[in-house]
């Protein structure tokens, strides 16, 4: 798919653009945190029983938390942890899921059976208990958190990549390449991966949002990295240190909204990209039907039929 074509169809998708902007704002806030934040998050604040959870004011736009710290500052710096965990964990997921999906889809047979059953098993185990158990075994800290979220988040990617690989490997040009003696690795590298990659990318965007939600969940349960303030951690402090009885909504609502902001942004962006890379989503299936009739059948088999729509850009 040519570059300008991609941007054209992406910008036609308004929700996708909104998602992109939302994410861009969050990333900018995380990167420029020291410039934006009104206070240094590491300053020692002298507190007394009467100045914790102070309501929003001119000095503290979003009030203060249980330790007398500025909520806005925490919120801005918290973006860093959430995004770092999200991006790195989804990268791990992408590598694992992409590899498993490619290998399973391309080689098929017993390899596929083993890999996909493994995927199914991981898919049916509820995430949260497994995450908690792994964290308990491996200890705390951001690298471990990233690792644990990453190695549990690849199942969806694996399935999507596998199904795409299945369709691509049956295409004419792949068969031609094979006919002239191309090896498996060469075919995967040169012909399959480039066609599967856009879909992996789309999937990764959605995996990031899942990873951020997982990080927030774990941090809220007190299983996050205690040294790094994330949004989930802010919620955890607010919850365990009596924000609700203090009526301090300002220490609960902002981190919650921030999580929603980023996750919503990523979801919109992911959906937008998906529509660009997978135009079938925009068309009625009957419309595709017409197109299919108009074209000479390219390949035979039930798998290939599903892939016909993709051949538009070829």
């Amino acid at each position: 798919m040519p570059q300008n074509n991609f941007w054209q169809s992406f910008f036609r998708n308004r929700m996708g653009v909104i998602g992109f902007v939302m994410l861009a704002i969050a990333v900018a806030v995380a990167i420029f945190a020291p410039l934006i934040a009104p206070y240094d998050p590491n300053t020692t604040v002298r507190v007394t029983i009467d100045n914790i959870y102070s309501p929003p004011s001119a000095q503290n736009w979003l009030g203060t938390d249980d330790a007398g710290k500025d909520v806005l500052t925490n919120l801005i710096y918290g973006a860093r942890v959430s995004l770092i965990v999200g991006f790195f964990a989804s990268f791990i997921s992408l590598v694992i899921g992409g590899t498993i999906g490619l290998v399973a889809g391309f080689y098929g047979g017993r390899v596929e059976n083993v890999l996909m059953r493994l995927t199914d098993i991981l898919l049916v185990i509820p995430d949260l208990p497994l995450l908690i158990v792994l964290i308990a075994l491996l200890g705390r800290g951001m690298p471990i958190l990233i690792f644990v979220i990453g190695i549990l988040g690849w199942t969806g990617t694996a399935r999507v990549v596998r199904s795409q690989t299945l369709s691509v490997r049956e295409r004419k040009f792949v068969q031609r390449a094979r006919a002239i003696g191309a090896g498996n690795l060469y075919i995967i590298r040169r012909h399959i991966f480039p066609l599967v990659f856009p879909l992996m990318l789309v999937n990764a965007v959605l995996v990031i949002s899942a990873a951020i939600l997982n990080e927030s969940t774990l941090a809220f349960l007190g299983l996050g990295d205690p040294t790094r303030l994330s949004w989930g951690q802010m919620l955890n402090f607010a919850f365990s240190r009596g924000a609700m009885s203090a009526g301090a909504w300002w220490s609960l609502v902002p981190p919650g909204l921030a999580i929603i902001w980023v996750v919503l942004g990523l979801t919109l962006l992911g959906n937008g990209l998906e529509r660009v890379f997978n135009p079938r989503l925009e068309m009625h299936h009957l419309a595709i039907g017409d197109e299919m009739v108009a074209r000479p059948p390219q390949v035979v088999g039930p798998v290939a039929v599903a892939a016909v729509g993709k051949t538009v850009g070829e």
Binding site: I49, D50, I52, Y53, R241, G242, A243, M244, S245, A246
Partner: peptide, 24 residues
């Protein structure tokens, strides 16, 4: 936290423990 709420609403008459943050 729920203990403090319960005391405020009158659901309970006494609480044996509470977060210090609810003192004010």
């Amino acid at each position: 936290d729920a203990l403090v709420q319960a005391l405020q609403t009158g659901q309970v008459d006494m609480i044996t423990k509470m977060p210090n943050t609810a003192v004010p």
